[in-house]
């Protein structure tokens, strides 16, 4: 899994995908996750980082992350490694 490394994210959570021209808005946790994805972190690593930095348990972090990944994929911001 990876995200386009040219994806521009500003501090305000504004995302611009230069390869499609789409813009998005994300929140603090979303930005945190995308930054980790750009560093090629695995899902497990991301979950443990979220739990480490935010006040949330692992089960909920996992559930929300799966949903977030699904959205990133549907927006074509994230691709599977083998694609």
């Amino acid at each position: 899994m990876y995200v386009n490394k040219n994806l521009a994210i500003s501090d305000t959570g504004f995302i611009f995908n230069p390869s499609t021209g789409d813009s998005f808005s994300t929140n603090e946790v979303g930005k945190f996750i995308i930054d980790l994805l750009k560093q090629k972190k695995s899902k497990e690593e991301i979950i443990s980082q979220i739990v480490l930095h935010f006040n949330v348990d692992k089960v909920n972090a996992d559930k929300d992350l799966s949903d977030f990944f699904a959205m990133l994929k549907s927006y074509q911001l994230m691709l599977d490694e083998n694609e």
């Binding site: 521009a8 500003s10 305000t12 959570g13 504004f14 611009f16 813009s23 808005s25």
Partner: peptide, 11 residues
Amino acid sequence: SLSEFEKISTF
């Protein structure tokens, strides 16, 4: 510029 679009979109 994109930054102008970002400003009106985010703020």
